[in-house]
């Protein structure tokens, strides 16, 4: 038994990725997620409008971070801001008592705001928009679509590609008179189509089983999902180029998946995270897909409200997918790469 334990330790010592998962990852996870795992929202972006705006803003509880006070703005302006996700709460003093519009799509923020307004009694009437019953599934299902796409795009794709390398058929493909583009597109297209099919099924099931409303433009949602798929498929290809075995690919994919689950804002609100941790979340593609999915499903938001997450995801897709294709191409046609380098020199 002693020999077996020693052998196992020796193997583990030389397997750097597993060692990283065993030692470094728990420390990183505890530190980052310890800060991130916070359902309590301390600060809610709020705007106040109408004739009594100044007075209400001055007396609002500290929880509400008053950004804009506009006595001339109308209720229509308030509803537009809410749909565009410019703010989480608008206190409208054109009504008596004032109406607080709360974004129900931001579940924990809305719960904190409702509780705070509840403590104020009849001074404010609360109108929770987009998710009046603060139903968790309404918020989670759109975000879960992103998580499912990430799972398929990253883990399944990388496993499929590494399998070619592990069985030696990637070398056979490289020897065949196929263009690298043929191989890359041929390998990725089935995963793209299957993931698109999954996205459609999960969306329909989400709407059907959980009664999640779909208030926006389905084509706009399909576009966002398509761009997001390019990002996660690109990550899958990148992982495959850095892995020799399927086990290594799974390890790397998990390392990429975990932060997306916990820091993308779909479990813990980004507003409740310390700035540095939220900044990590802002670097993750799922964060932007969650914004797009919740915006389109619940708020019925259009491109004018969601242009930023679309732009960021497009940039990520171009960057990640290009890097993935270049690395994969180098695996397939190393001599061409070498000749190009020699020519440049």
């Amino acid at each position: 038994m002693k020999a077996m334990i020693l052998k196992e330790f020796r193997e583990l010592r030389r397997d750097r990725r597993t060692m990283a998962m065993l030692i470094i990852l728990p420390i990183v996870l505890l530190t980052i997620f310890g800060y991130a795992a916070n359902f309590t929202v301390d600060s809610i972006p709020t705007r106040v409008i109408g004739p009594g705006a100044e007075q209400v803003a001055a007396n609002a509880p500290d929880l509400f971070d008053i950004g804009e006070v506009d006595a001339d703005a109308t209720t229509d302006d308030a509803l537009t801001w809410m749909q565009d996700n410019d703010t989480e709460v608008v206190i409208d003093t054109t009504t008596q008592p004032p109406t607080a519009y709360v974004d129900g799509a931001s579940l924990f923020t809305a719960q904190s705001a409702s509780a705070a307004f509840g403590r104020m009694g009849d001074q404010v009437q609360v109108d929770i928009l987009y998710n009046p019953d603060l139903d968790t599934s309404w918020v989670m299902v759109p975000a879960l679509i992103g998580l499912i796409l990430t799972f398929i795009g990253t883990i399944i794709t990388s496993i499929g590609l590494v399998k070619e390398r592990q069985t030696g058929t990637l070398e056979q493909l490289a020897v065949m008179p196929l263009r690298p583009a043929d191989v890359i597109v041929g390998k990725i297209a089935p995963y793209f189509l299957l993931a698109s099919f999954d996205m459609l099924v999960v969306t329909l099931l989400g709407v059907w089983i959980f009664d999640v409303p779909f208030n926006g433009n389905p084509w706009l949602f399909a576009l966002g999902a398509g761009i997001f798929l390019f990002v996660v498929l690109g990550l899958g290809v990148l992982i495959s180029t850095a892995s020799q075995t399927q086990a290594q690919a799974i390890q790397l994919a998990i390392m990429m998946l975990l932060p997306q689950i916990l820091l993308s804002g779909f479990i813990f609100p980004l507003d409740a995270m310390p700035t540095a941790i939220a900044a990590i979340g802002r670097c993750l593609p799922l964060t932007y897909f969650v914004e797009i999915a919740q915006g389109i499903f619940l708020r019925g938001a259009g491109l004018e409200a969601l242009w930023l997450p679309y732009a960021v995801l497009t940039g990520m897709a171009l960057l990640v997918f290009s890097a993935a294709v270049l690395r994969f191409r180098r695996d397939l046609a190393p001599s061409a790469h070498h000749r190009a380098k020699a020519k440049a020199a």
Partner: peptide
């Protein structure tokens, strides 16, 4: 120099068979 065009004219059986 070895290229895709050249490889189209050969048949290769690798150690791992490439099947």
């Amino acid at each position: 120099p070895p290229s895709r065009e050249g490889r189209a004219r050969l048949g290769y059986v690798p150690q791992g068979l490439g099947l």
